[in-house]
Each structure stands twice: as C-alpha cells, then as structure tokens.
Design a protein around this nucleic acid. Structure first.
Lengths: 151, 151
DNA sequence: TTTAAGATGGACAAAAATGTCCGATTCAAA
DNA sequence: TTTGAATCGGACATTTTTGTCCATCTTAAA
C-alpha cells in the first residue's frame, strides 16, 4: 500500500528526529535504518528538494531536519517522495459531467482522504514521544530490555 | 495509492454488477470501462481464480459475478488482484522484540487497517444503489442529463 | 459438422520503481 | 594548501508492474 520509497523516507526522518540539530551522514542513517546506502542518498535528495531536510556538504556534513520534529508531519515527508494523489475527477475522463465523482471513486477518494488526514495530523515529535515504553529506533547490537521496539 | 490493477478490477466488477446474472464478454467490459482489453483479460483471470467471478467459455460466454452484488465487498475484489498487506512485524526484522510495532509502523498499520475496514464493509450493491442521483457507469455516447456521473 | 464468439495462457515489450556505481563538487580541518 | 569526509547527480542495472500479441481450447448456434 505504501511504496518502499515512502518507508525509507519515514525511517530516515525518524532517525534524524532523534537528534535533529546536528547533521547526520547518509551512511550513518543507512546503517541505522537498514536500507541501501545509495538509494537512501536519492531519497534524501528528494527530501531536501521538498524542504524537509537541509543538506550540509563537506566534511562533517550530512542531512538535518529543517524544522523541529513537532513542526514536521508525516504527510510532509510522504508527499516529498511519493505524493498522495486525491481523486478529483473521473479517471475515465468522460466529458459532460462536472466535478462530481461516481460512487466508486467517491469511496476510493474518501479512503485516501482519511489516510491523508491521519498523516497530516501526526508530527515526528509525536512519533518519538516516549512517555510510553516504545522507542522508534534501537541499535541492533543492543538487544532491547523490555519493549524497546525497533523501527 | 491504489494500483492501476485495483482500479481496473473495481471498474470491471462494478460494470458486471449492473446486470450480474448474465455473462459479459471481456471486450464489452473493456469498452464500457475504457481500459486495455488484453490487460483486463488478465485481471479477470485473477478475479476468477479468487472466486469473485465465474468464467463461462464458448460462444455467448463471458464473466459473471459468483454472488449477488450485496454479498461481494470491495475488499474481496481488491484482495483478489493486489492484496492489502497489514504490517504485522518490524520491517527491519530486528530480533529481540515481540509482536509489538514501533510507533511509526503502528501508525502506518493503523491507516492500513482503516482503509481495509472501509472496503470490507462496502458491498458492490451499496455502490450501485442509486437512491441518489449518481450512477456508477454511464455510456459515453449518452451525455448525462443532470448529475449522471461516470465511473 | 462447421463456424464464430469467447476464455486461456504463454511469450514478449514497454514503462516505472528500485537499486548500484562512480566521478565531480563542496567544505572543514589539519 | 592539502586532504578527507560528505553531498550531488548522471549513468546504468535489476525487478516489478503494466500492456500487447497470438495460438489454442471451449462452447453455442447455424
């Protein structure tokens, strides 16, 4: 239902959000989130173009969130790499009817709108908020003690 | 968000549902729903294997719903061609934690569950039910009079 | 029995998504 | 000023999805 690219982008920003005021090298992020290094590089470039992250080049550079995790929503991240497309007209493209949708596409678009909203109102900060026992990422070599669930 | 194949499958069964006790040839369905004939043939085979439709071979054959539109849900159709996959374990595959998900994947799976439910509880009959002014399909050459919206 | 309408399914082609490689560029620190 | 760490971005490879073609099998009607 969600593309690999979206998954990758979300894992990456979640990793960045843990320490968001410093740049993190692609390689570090890739290691931590277990994804192909060079593909992540492309994903980060997309996130950069969309203004979700900043690129700091040169030594000790890397990527960094442009805003506090409480300001960034999951929808921003998703739309940066693989925009959620609402259905705003009949996919059959028949002429002669207005902006109304037939029942099928009305249903489909309702579902899309709901998931869009679910992500529009979820910030990265909420994801990381660990008042509960869960954590969004955990290092591989440090097995979790209780419910230290990995991303 | 939804694949072309899903769109096609839904259009096709919506077309079949309008007159579900007779078989309809692939070519007829393809014309009416504006999709590639030969690709639809593959989609119909998948729907057939999944038990959503029956194939009647030979002259005057075609495809036909196996059950009344009120018995068939959108989810059945979707799952027949492109199953909705729930997230039931950490995609990173890290060992050492149970069946719990981290916050990110919990959110993602919540969204998936909601759309799954939206389709589980919508039948084809509901889609066709035209107490309202909308109709799920309309012929191209007959321009709609009021709000006769096309699929 | 012949014929035409129709599904079946294998093979292939095209396009999109995903993944890999590497040289060029940028910048900070030594 | 040199060097090393890092992004940038083009080229290419692989895989999946989507689309096309066609020979074969099946059945009803003529």
């Amino acid at each position: 239902m969600f593309s690999h690219t979206v998954e990758y982008a979300l894992r990456a920003v979640a990793a960045l959000a843990e320490d968001w005021e410093r740049p993190h090298a692609v390689q570090k992020i890739a290691d931590r989130t277990k994804m192909p290094n060079d593909y992540l590089a492309k994903v980060m470039q997309a996130l950069c173009r969309a203004g979700v992250v900043n690129a700091i080049r040169g030594r000790h550079g890397g990527y960094q969130l442009t805003q506090a995790p409480s300001k960034l929503t999951l929808l921003m991240v998703i739309n940066a790499v693989d925009p959620i497309k609402r259905i705003d007209r009949c996919p059959l493209g028949l002429p002669g009817h207005g902006p109304n949708l037939c029942p099928l596409h009305r249903r489909l678009d309702d579902a899309i709108r709901e998931t869009e909203n679910a992500f529009r109102y979820t910030t990265l900060a909420e994801l990381l908020d660990s008042t509960g026992p869960v954590r969004p990422l955990c290092p591989v070599d440090q097995p979790p003690a209780f419910i230290n669930v990995a991303l």
